[in-house]
C-alpha cells in the first residue's frame, strides 16, 4: 500500500521492504509503498464481549484494525454479556465476532494499563516495571513474581498492593 510522505527519510535505508516507486498516476513523483502487516496473532482487551466473540472496543484505540490484520485473535473482556447488553454496555465501537478466534472473561485484564471509564493506569506498578526492566536480574525477579508465579489473573491481582 502507498504511504504519503516518507520519501527521502532513512526508512528507505533501514527498511528494505519499503520501496520507492514512480507514482503510477504521476510518474515524475516518487511514492513510498509498504507491505501490509499480517500478524500471526493479536491479543486485545475489550470493554465487553458476547459469547460468540463480538467485542465492544475503546473507540480511541486501534484494536479493531489490529484484529482485522491478524490470523488469530484472542480477546479478553472485562465481562461477557448478551448481544442486547453489548449495545448498552458503554461507549465504544463494535467489532463483529467473525474477526475473533477466542474470547475469555478477564476483569481488570488490562492492568497495569487502563480501561477508559472503568479503571486508570496503575502508574506505581508501571514505575516498578520500568525500574525492574533496567537490569536482567531485577527483570527475572519481576517475571517470577508477577508473570510466572501467580496461578491465574485473580492471583496476579491479589499480589498488587
Amino acid at each position: 500500500m502507498a504511504v504519503p510522505g516518507h520519501v527521502g527519510s532513512d526508512y528507505e535505508r533501514l527498511r528494505p521492504e519499503f520501496k520507492v516507486i514512480p507514482n503510477p498516476y504521476d510518474p515524475a513523483q516518487p511514492v513510498m509503498i509498504v507491505p501490509a502487516i499480517r500478524c500471526d496473532a493479536a491479543l486485545i482487551h475489550a470493554l465487553a464481549a458476547t459469547p460468540d466473540g463480538t467485542l465492544l472496543l475503546d473507540h480511541m484505540e486501534d484494536d479493531a484494525l489490529l484484529a482485522q490484520a491478524s490470523r488469530v485473535v484472542i480477546a479478553s473482556a472485562e465481562r461477557i454479556v448478551t448481544r442486547d447488553e453489548l449495545g448498552r454496555a458503554g461507549e465504544g465501537v463494535v467489532l463483529e465476532g467473525i474477526h475473533v478466534t477466542a474470547v475469555v472473561e478477564l476483569p481488570r485484564g488490562a492492568h497495569p494499563t487502563f480501561v477508559r471509564g472503568l479503571y486508570a493506569v496503575d502508574a506505581a506498578h508501571l514505575s516498578e516495571y520500568v525500574v525492574a526492566a533496567r537490569d536482567d536480574e531485577a527483570f527475572r525477579d519481576y517475571l517470577a513474581r508477577y508473570v510466572h508465579g501467580p496461578k491465574d489473573h485473580a492471583a496476579y491481582l491479589a499480589l498488587l498492593t
Partner: peptide, 15 residues
Amino acid sequence: DHVASPGSSPPEVAR
C-alpha cells in the same frame, strides 16, 4: 544519526 522525518525534500516529492 538517523532521519525519521527530513526537514526538506526535493521538488519532485509531494510535500
